[in-house]
Design a binder for these strands. Structure first.
Length: 744
DNA sequence: CTAAACACTGTTTTT
DNA sequence: CAGTGTTTAG
């Protein structure tokens, strides 16, 4: 049922109405956390439509595909049957390139390479350039190339500005890398912005055409745009200056990815006649939560002071929970959530647990499983990143884009067809020399005598297989996947093995079929190419299933834009949040503080900030210092020591109330910019060098154990202890707290 | 050419 | 610790 214009505004506040009904000309909406920004943009799109703006003249950019989908739905509820373009910058880039790519000599069947693919191509490029024993990792070089593209630097331009050894190396690789992508008819993530941005800059005809087409442009999360995205936005709004951007400088958390907070801060410089509307009333959180979040973000020096106001009723105080270990922490959270559900205070789905790093989800996973708490870990790519799925996807990519050499290399010998490294090198050499794709080369084996025996047969088979599969290119995606599984022998391979892992893998590839089926069912026009694109451009939150009644576990970055009644933030410790790599640089610490701020402001009713005295980190147990952000909280937060109650060993008590000097030494360390993982000066265990193999010792957490191995000296000395109950663990000798029970 | 055993290494955050 | 790359044996 279509809605009247007035209804679009009825439940909005005055500033929100102003933002919605601003018609032409530039508009900047500074929207604090929880101020109803999504609702405003959605209404604005609907309102524009009601004013008679044609749907095809509106372009709305969101930060995730999920947000785009939701906005599409909501706009559709308000104004059914519209065809407004709503997408992320990356999807927009892909869409524009598919549609207009031919004008700039791009084949529309291009493959989109993800970061893993990028690394592989960089590796190949390094080899091709004859650079081998360089200490720059392919990841780092790939990152530099990505950064160059974000700044719209072509290989030539980059080369002309590069000075030191690293940038010169990157420049060399960049050119080769780009050629390899072209040869494979592939684009990487950054190309999806870089190429459209450059095209808009250089091709005035196309630029003017698109500018005229997109009369109204809206960009959400504008504080997280990078230079390429900025360029695209600007170039689309030169003639039709109806640009509306929405954002909050305090929630800029993608600087590491090239986002430039200046884009939003300088909007009024770019558009001096811009209307600026501030939305600072918060409709989401309790006063206590806002007070805590404000107190933290206020510590940022590079920031315009800004208050968060609310009329919401007072609620529970914000709580800081301190645990003895990461496992206790996870367990404590699980128990609290269980209690809240049992007490009918919340449902499982009302809870979210945020982590700074994906590695931190491990403990939570164990604890939730043990306590029978239903949960989902929101991590989009995890499923498609599984080896078996990537294998199948390589086939699919090759079917869509037969010159995709990277996918050829991946698929050709999976399952094993006797095609080894050496044969592939011959094949690559021939393809290179004749400027053809690997697939085409594999159809000319008679010209490559160096490939013989099993490899030759295997390649011939593979070539034929792909040719046959390509015949079915127009079939529904799920049928093609089934064909791939059947005809390639991939399913047979998994079935034959009968190992547990392979049964799982089989289930996963079957799941891939289901996923393709669902994807195609949503819209009958969707092709295999669309399916592949959707997978590669999917963000972590895109996989989030709101329907399920379970606790959501996700990174703080993925949490942006969401809200939950009860929020837990895990591991608020120096070196984690703020992250280790940011501690040296005040600007980076400020970004970490914004990350914390984003997490805190997701909470509607209850907010729990957790930290632990000890943290298991890459196999080692380390002492952890509470996050500096916890010290920045107002006095009225409730600080609860969860280690002080139940379930601990007597040894732990003894240690806690132990020698004053040792404990104050921790305190003295305070919040110096020291990564938590570095062995601390002044805390050295005097016994460190005396431990030897075979000694019986007692650990404050794990109890009695035998030293099973010792190596290194001083700060590097490590000891392995086999515990009676918890297996073998490794510790840094100078930091572990042990009591020697018996000498050897 | 493959598979299995081993050594090494490196660690945020993501489209 | 895990994931990757390298070596080795079949």
């Amino acid at each position: 049922m279509p809605v009247e214009s007035s209804d679009l505004l009825a439940d909005l506040t005055f500033p929100q109405q102003e933002a919605v009904t601003h018609f032409e000309g530039p508009l900047l909406i500074l929207a604090g956390a929880g101020s109803g920004k999504t609702r405003v943009i959605t209404r604005r799109v609907a309102w524009l439509l009601k004013q008679g703006v044609r749907p095809s003249n509106i372009l709305a950019i969101t930060f995730t595909n999920k947000a785009a989908g939701e906005m599409k739905n909501r706009v559709n509820d308000l104004v059914p049957g519209n065809r407004v373009w709503i997408s992320t910058f990356h999807s927009l880039g892909a869409r524009l390139l598919r549609q207009y790519g031919e004008r700039i000599g791009l084949n529309r069947d291009f493959t989109i390479y993800d970061t893993d693919d990028r690394t592989k191509i960089v590796k190949q490029s390094l080899e091709a350039a004859g650079i081998d024993n360089v200490k720059f990792t392919p990841e780092r070089i790939g990152g530099a190339i990505g950064k160059a593209k974000n700044q719209l630097l072509t290989p030539e331009k980059y080369a002309s500005t590069s000075g030191d050894f690293f940038t010169r190396t990157v420049a060399q690789v960049y050119a080769i890398y780009q050629k390899k992508l072209r040869d494979s008819n592939a684009l990487d993530f950054d190309d999806l912005l870089y190429i459209p941005a450059l095209t808009l800059r250089l091709n005035e005809e196309l630029r003017a055409e698109l500018d005229a087409r997109f009369q109204f442009v809206l960009v959400d999360e504008y504080q997280d745009t990078n230079s390429a995205q900025y360029e695209i936005t600007r170039k689309l709004t030169l003639d039709q200056r109806n640009l509306c951007v929405v954002g909050d400088p305090d929630q800029s958390i993608y600087r590491w990815r090239g986002s430039d907070i200046k884009n939003i801060l300088d909007f009024e410089r770019d558009f001096p006649d811009a209307r600026v509307i501030t939305l600072d009333k918060n409709y989401r959180s309790t006063p206590a939560i806002l007070k805590a979040a404000s107190a933290v973000i206020d510590h940022n020096k590079q920031r315009k002071k800004k208050a968060l106001l609310t009329d919401n009723a007072a609620g529970e105080p914000v709580r800081v929970l301190t645990f003895d270990s990461g496992l206790h922490e996870a367990n404590g959270i699980a128990l609290r959530i269980k209690a809240a559900v049992a007490g009918n205070r919340f449902a499982y789905r009302d809870h979210a647990v945020f982590v700074r790093m994906n590695a931190l989800t491990r403990n939570l996973e164990t604890a939730f499983v043990q306590n029978g708490v239903p949960f989902q870990i929101v991590k989009g790519q995890a499923f498609f990143d599984r080896k078996e799925n990537r294998d199948v996807l390589a086939y699919l990519r090759l079917i869509v884009n037969p010159v995709d050499n990277l996918s050829f290399l991946r698929a050709s010998n999976e399952p094993a067809r006797g095609i080894g490294k050496v044969s592939l090198e011959h094949l690559q050499a021939y393809a290179e020399a004749n400027q053809i794709s690997l697939l085409e080369a594999s159809g000319r084996l008679e010209k490559i005598p160096a490939i013989k025996g099993k490899a030759r047969d295997g390649l011939r088979l593979f070539h034929k297989l792909i040719a046959e599969l390509r015949e079915t290119l127009e079939s529904p995606p799920e049928d093609i996947i089934r064909n791939v599984l059947d005809q390639s022998g991939y399913r047979a391979m998994l079935k034959a093995s009968g190992e547990d892992d392979d049964i799982d893998r089989l289930a996963n590839v079957e799941e891939l079929i289901t996923s393709a089926m669902q994807f195609a069912a949503e819209d009958g026009t969707r092709t295999l190419r669309d399916f592949l694109e959707q997978i590669t451009l999917a963000s972590d939150v895109d996989s989030w299933d709101e329907q399920q009644n379970c606790v959501s576990v996700m990174t703080l970055h993925a949490a942006k834009g969401l809200e939950f009644p009860a929020v837990y933030i895990v591991a608020m410790e120096q070196g984690i949040l703020p992250g280790e790599r940011s501690l040296a640089n005040p600007e980076d610490v400020e970004e970490e503080r914004r990350v914390a701020f984003v997490g805190m402001t997701r909470a509607m009713k209850e907010l729990y900030l957790c930290n632990s005295r000890m943290r298991d980190f890459r196999g080692q147990t380390l002492f952890a210092i509470p996050s500096m952000f916890l010290d920045e909280l107002p006095d009225d937060v409730e600080r609860l020591d969860q280690g002080a109650h139940g379930g601990r060993s007597p040894a732990m008590d003894q240690w806690r109330s132990g020698p004053r000097e040792a404990r104050s030494a921790w305190g003295d360390l305070g919040h110096k910019p020291l990564p938590a993982a570095i062995p601390f000066a002044g805390t050295n265990n005097p016994d460190a060098d005396t431990y030897e193999k075979g000694q019986l010792v007692q650990h404050e957490q794990y109890g009695i154990g035998t030293i099973s191995d010792v190596n290194g000296y001083g700060a590097l000395r490590k000891i392995k202890i086999r515990f009676a109950t918890s297996g073998e663990k490794t510790f840094i000798a100078s930091k572990v707290k042990l009591k020697v029970v018996t000498k050897k």
